[in-house]
């Protein structure tokens, strides 16, 4: 149940928005597809909601003078799917967008909300009625975890479908705060602690995401594995982006795993293996094994048997990386 007394404000300027967000128990909201659900379940209890959709540039997709793709944080997922600018600069992003939830979710849900969606766990993201039946876990203020009962560490999963691909593309975020705006790599958004997954301070919000377009010789791909073909969150996802890959240059690879940890995970060892000249079939198999090794899924979501998710990480890696290598070979041969 959502408490009836929640205030909803719609500022038009960043300064005002950040000031409002700095107040106690204030939360940003864009499409509300994720936040409202947590509010209904009683695991988020903001007293005021600061609607970001009217802030300048928030709903805009544009190419900056230097070619950078600038995506306003309140741009909807379906807008990403359909934008000609996205299709031109980073078609893989549109592909990933198309795999998010279902059309209704994508019509409301925003890019910023997608990145800032909370981590999830089937012992925690539940209604009060359900949670009553179980002792509160570490994330809920208790002292144990129902998933891995060893220490006070949370193993909830971060399930954004856009984060892995944006991380592989080395996207940057524009963050607005009371002191003005700052810029940071998307990897800096994550704390690594699944109980408090983000590094944004009180009063801060993401206003835009910057993506360096894929140019000639750049290759990127995204794969998602879920229980059903639509609606479902990923059980595992994998994003790969390679810059300077098929134009004979050394090549720079980013491999990012999603949904198996409290944040997207890069697999630098696998990247290095395939970046190396002379990488072949065997390197793909080795790299895929490394990816699977980095995936440490736990039993925290439905249909997410850990051994299976690790297996799928390997299958996805084999498929995407094998394809990547084939493309490099084709271009050089």
């Amino acid at each position: 149940m959502i408490s009836p007394g929640v205030r909803h404000v719609r500022p038009r300027e960043y300064q005002e928005a950040c000031a409002l967000l700095h107040e106690r128990q204030a939360a940003p909201i864009a499409g509300g597809t994720e936040l409202y659900l947590r509010m209904k379940q009683g695991v988020a209890t903001p007293r005021s909601l600061v609607d970001l959709t009217d802030l300048p540039g928030m709903r805009q997709i544009e190419r900056l003078a230097d070619g950078t793709l600038r995506l306003g944080a309140a741009v909807t997922i379906s807008a990403l799917e359909r934008s000609p600018l996205v299709a031109e600069a980073a078609p893989v992003l549109a592909e990933a967008a198309q795999r998010v939830g279902a059309p209704q979710i994508r019509n409301m849900g925003s890019l910023g909300g997608n990145l800032c969606q909370e981590t999830m766990c089937w012992w925690y993201n539940r209604t009060a009625l359900w949670r009553q039946a179980k002792e509160p876990c570490y994330k809920a203020g208790g002292s144990l975890c129902h998933v891995v009962d060893q220490e006070a560490v949370c193993y909830a999963a971060y399930r954004s479908d856009l984060a892995p691909i944006l991380m592989s593309l080395e996207a940057e975020l524009i963050v607005q705060g009371r002191q003005g705006e700052r810029r940071m790599g998307i990897d800096e958004l994550y704390s690594g602690d699944a109980a408090f997954p983000f590094t944004l301070a009180a009063g801060e919000l993401i206003s835009a995401v910057l993506v360096r377009p894929l140019g000639e010789g750049d290759v990127a791909a995204f794969a998602k594995h879920a229980h059903r073909r639509s609606i479902d969150y990923p059980l595992v996802s994998l994003a790969v982006a390679a810059r300077g890959w098929t134009n004979g240059a050394a090549g720079r690879l980013r491999i990012v795993l999603g949904a198996v940890s409290g944040m997207p995970i890069r697999v630098p060892e696998a990247e290095a293996l395939l970046e190396a000249a002379g990488a072949g079939e065997r390197s793909v198999a080795e790299a895929a094994a490394l990816v699977a090794k980095h995936a440490k899924p736990v039993r925290n979501v439905s249909f997410g048997a850990p051994a299976y998710r690790r297996h799928i990480a390997k299958v996805l890696a084999r498929r995407l990386l094998g394809d990547l290598l084939a493309r490099r070979r084709a271009s050089s041969g």
Binding site: W122, R126, R228, R229, I231, D232, Y233, S302
Partner: peptide, 18 residues
């Protein structure tokens, strides 16, 4: 005795896509 799939998202009813 506690149901781990108490909603349609977690339960996984097939859709028209399946």
């Amino acid at each position: 005795g506690l149901l781990l799939t108490p909603n349609f998202t977690d339960y996984g009813l097939p859709t028209s896509m399946e």
